[in-house]
Design a protein around this nucleic acid. Structure first.
Length: 862
RNA sequence: GCGGGUGUGGUGGAAUUGGUAGACGCGCCGGAUUCAAAAUCCGGUUCCGAGAGGAGUGCGAGUUCGAGUCUCGCCACCCGCACCA
């Protein structure tokens, strides 16, 4: 076998240069060609790519190169999600300006991505932190205002009382500020919102059209939107003329009501209980729970008895009114009625405050409602005129009665809340609003856009530097000319990532986010991004915001489509083993090695290393590998091949040294095999197919065409690991292909070249540098990047025999080879002729004979 | 807590969607080559059993001629939860 003579570094660089010189991946609108838009989620420019990026962009590149080979006009762009918190952290920790830090990171990461050999049209690159990008979203925001999609309201944030800054949920650790350690408070601020709830039904309906999305993502979005039918109705507050409006999805359980619960943020809460002993402490305690739903749900359920009672005309008795910390002001009316027997949270609350538990639903199984809430189906009991009804009928009856006596109405509620887009941060897109004492919140006139982010800022003080900027903040009112101040909040960075899929279609347009004709070619309704690829962690927020934003843009006349991504693929995480030294300190994989006995030790001092769980790569656990090292050591093709091998892309990928080594070996082996072992036997490029091929040569071709067929199916279904297994199997077939006689005959030589070229062309999307090099070494003058995907000769896929298993009473005892179309009679004869079948039947008679042609025979004996 | 998902040899995974479980790879074992090692090549490798044979897809039930695949109930791990991106 050959020595390795494939110079990976030089060769890979050579082909990247060749593609770039040729502008191989630059595209423009071409009405003669069908377009195909492949998009991977753009990266946050943290400074270095990580293995998750390598996985994401490798997957996208396989699709892009495969579709290009199929003749599509493939749009495959790249850009930078360049606003966000880490840039401000870098500024505070290291004194670097967020803009400088971000732009340097982009430059570094661009080089890293380029070294992967991606088929990207770099002329379309965008960075969201540049005014030529964000000016358009400022304009869109003004349009949203005009169309009633944007509005301002009060909402709560996490407040660090020491730094006097707003904290992201991520910056709240165990209820305390991450830097100051001070208990976080909730604080109300006026903020801008987008009316995503106006589109809730449409977003829900649209999910049905997304048949090329993973079902799990559609389900998650459906649950997130959380459409529910229910009753909104008023309770009377005993001894006052006040009423409490309550929403419930379970009006059927009305007679089991044990208490009314108010959100601590509910206006009535302070009104009823303010001044009562313990109230201030209670509210303070509530305010120390973070704003995240998770924190609220996990926090201990606390209540405060207002001392008031409430009643409802249909109920007939009075129940106490509590303030409860688990009730969200944002959902429904911010008030509920609690039914301990049929809701576990209410049950826990009732136990804690000694409230009665009254069962009103029963399924006759004797469920003990004093031990645990019952949430299953059943009939109504203890509920007067509802007794004996099923749940749905009882719901309808209560809604009807409330509507008749005018105390309530049936209504639809959504769990989805409007999208708060204000961030009290510097490194984001300025919200184009000016506040004037007389005129209020005034939109910045379009002629004054963009409102650019000032670069001369300092991070000496905590909080948003825009607030203390000496000149930027102060301006004059566009309406009346009086001194005024700019909005110092910036947009949520999800704003930028909600429309970048459009910007790539027309990235240098100065007047519009994108021109109509470009949108019509690349993003027509029903044929938008054919394939979007990214992490499943974006299943709800980013993907829902982008779907909403697209609809909002449509409302404002920018585009004609409503679903931005027709096909979605969500990849799994990349994991790695974790390592700790004897002192428990986390170690990087690069700090350890295997000793002679195969145990891991620290490289610098040889001390023992504890190998821990394989988990998601994270900086804190140091279980990360640097793609740059991998690419430098093994080359881009090996990294790409390993990423695609073994693990199905939707599942987690365990990064191992052995795995990347195996991929590297394959590249060297197949190169050596083709160039040193068989190249000299091959006929020249373009040799005509001989008149007749031997059975032997045809068998090889059959395998080759089966592979093409299988590879196409696998790539289209994102079964990249199976596609890899397929061409590796075929590589083994090739290596085992020997002349039947002493010498190669012409047919064999031709079949060998044909098969090798097929192999090269089908693995090209995965290992484009190696494929291009082999293509040239075999004598081709053209670039493989311009070649078409090989066509399947379907006559070669037909098999004349098939081997199937023979079961006796469900257990495999033998196998038989038949024509795929063999009759049941033929199958029966062949099966019963098998010794093992007779043995297993053990003299018993044939009771039933099952024959599924091409699949199985089952002899039922007894 | 709520919502979504995953579970198959020593190991990553495959199984034409109800039809011969373990393709392909990693690792390991044996052989060739080598002064030796590395690298490379060839062969073997689910478990128990000498063998005939038996068992086997997280655990427990069920449907079926036939279940990794479908149904129900558990267990374990992972992702998201609206200001990380």
């Amino acid at each position: 076998m050959s020595n390795e003579r494939y110079n990976i570094r030089e060769t890979e660089e050579k082909w990247r240069t060749a593609w770039a010189k040729r502008n191989a991946f630059a595209v423009s609108e071409d009405p003669a060609k069908k377009k195909y838009y492949v998009l991977e989620m753009f990266p946050y420019p943290s400074g270095r790519i990580h293995v998750g990026h390598v996985r994401n962009y490798t997957l996208g590149d396989v699709v892009a190169r495969y579709r290009k080979a199929q003749g599509f006009n493939v749009l495959h762009p790249m850009g930078w999600d360049a606003f966000g918190l880490p840039a401000e952290n870098a500024a505070m920790e290291r004194g670097l300006h967020p803009g400088k830090w971000t732009r340097e990171n982009i430059a570094a990461m661009r080089e890293q991505l380029k070294s992967m050999g991606l088929s990207i049209d770099w002329s379309r690159e965008v960075a969201t932190c540049e005014p030529d990008y964000y000016r358009h979203e400022q304009k869109m925001f003004l349009d949203f205002l005009k169309n009633g999609i944007a509005y301002r309201k009060e909402s709560v944030v996490n407040w660090d009382p020491v730094d006097n800054t707003v904290l992201a949920n991520e910056q709240v650790v165990d209820g305390k500020g991450w830097r100051t350690g001070a208990p976080v408070e909730r604080r109300k601020l006026n903020q801008w919102f987008l009316k995503i709830t106006d589109y809730a039904d449409d977003l829900l309906e649209g999910l049905k059209t997304l048949d090329r999305w993973p079902e799990k993502v559609r389900i998650m979005q459906e649950k997130w939107i959380g459409k529910s039918q229910g009753l909104q109705f008023k309770w009377n507050l005993v001894g006052t003329d006040q009423q409490i409006e309550v929403f419930t999805t379970r009006p059927d359980t009305l007679f089991g009501a044990a208490f009314i619960g108010l959100s601590p943020d509910h206006p009535l809460a302070t009104q009823l209980a303010g001044g009562k002993p313990g109230f201030d402490d209670f509210i303070r305690e509530c305010q120390q729970v973070g704003t995240s739903e998770e924190a609220i749900e996990k926090a201990e359920k606390l209540g405060f008895d207002t001392g008031y009672m409430a009643t409802h005309p249909l109920l007939g008795h009075e129940i106490p009114v509590y303030i409860a910390n688990f009730i969200l002001m944002d959902y429904g009316t911010g008030a509920i009625f609690g039914v301990p027997a049929h809701d576990q949270r209410d049950f826990d609350f009732a136990k804690k405050y000694h409230l009665p538990i009254r069962q009103v639903i029963s399924d006759d199984s004797g469920h003990d409602c004093t031990a645990e809430a019952y949430t299953g189906p059943g009939k109504l009991v203890n509920s007067h005129y509802l007794d004996g009804m099923d749940i749905e009928a009882a719901k309808a009856e209560i809604i009807k009665r409330c509507e008749e006596n005018g105390t309530g109405f049936g209504t639809t509620q959504y769990r989805l809340r409007d999208w708060g887009i204000s961030r009290q941060r510097y490194w984001g897109c300025p919200i184009p609003i000016i506040y004037c004492e007389d005129c209020g919140a005034v939109p910045v006139p379009e002629k004054d856009l963009p409102v650019t982010l000032p670069e001369d800022v300092s991070f000496d003080k905590p909080g948003n530097p825009l607030v203390h900027h000496p000149t930027w903040k102060n301006c004059s009112c566009p309406t009346c000319g009086k001194p005024a101040t700019r909005e110092t909040d910036t947009f949520d960075t999800f704003f930028e990532s909600s429309w970048y899929q459009f910007r790539y279609c027309d990235p240098h347009n100065e007047t519009l986010p994108l021109a109509k004709d470009k949108a019509a070619y690349w993003m027509p309704k029903g044929h938008t991004v054919e394939q979007y690829i990214g992490g499943v962690e974006h299943a709800v927020l980013h993907l829902l915001y982008a779907r909403f934003f697209t609809r909002a843009m449509k409302t404002c006349g920018y585009v004609d489509c409503d679903e931005p991504f027709m096909g979605l693929f969500t990849q799994g995480m990349v994991t790695h083993e974790t390592y700790q030294d004897t002192a428990g300190k986390w170690l990087f994989p690069s700090e350890i090695a295997k000793d002679d006995s195969g145990k891991f030790v620290k490289i610098d001092d040889g001390s023992a290393v504890k190998v821990g769980a394989t988990i998601k790569m994270s900086k804190s656990k140091r279980n990360v590998v640097d793609p740059e090292d991998i690419l430098g050591t093994y080359g881009a093709d090996a990294a790409r091949l390993f990423i695609l091998s073994d693990s199905p892309p939707e599942r987690d990928l365990e990064w191992t040294e052995a795995g990347i080594g195996g991929a590297y070996n394959y590249i060297r082996q197949i190169y050596g095999f083709i160039i040193y072992d068989v190249k000299d036997f091959l006929p020249p490029v373009g040799t005509e197919k001989p008149e007749a091929l031997s059975r032997h040569a045809t068998d090889l071709l059959k395998q080759a065409h089966k592979m093409i067929h299988g590879m196409s199916q696998d790539i289209e279904a994102f079964h990249m690991n199976k596609a890899v297994a397929r061409f590796r199997t075929f590589s083994n077939d090739l290596k085992g292909f020997k002349p039947e006689a002493q010498e190669w005959d012409d047919g064999e030589r031709w079949a060998l070249r044909e098969s090798i070229e097929i192999l090269i062309r089908v693995f090209n999307p995965m290992m484009p540098h190696l494929a291009e090099e082999l293509w040239q070494m075999l004598g081709h003058k053209t670039l493989l990047v311009d070649e078409r995907w090989p066509e399947v000769d379907h006559t070669l896929l037909i098999e004349d025999t098939v081997t199937i298993g023979v079961q006796v009473n469900g257990k495999v005892r033998a196998s038989i080879t038949l024509a795929p179309t063999a009759s049941e009679e033929e199958a029966r004869t062949a099966a019963l002729a098998q010794d093992n079948v007779q043995k297993a039947m053990d003299g018993k008679s044939l009771r039933k004979f099952i024959y599924v042609p091409g699949k199985i025979v089952n002899v039922v004996a007894g």
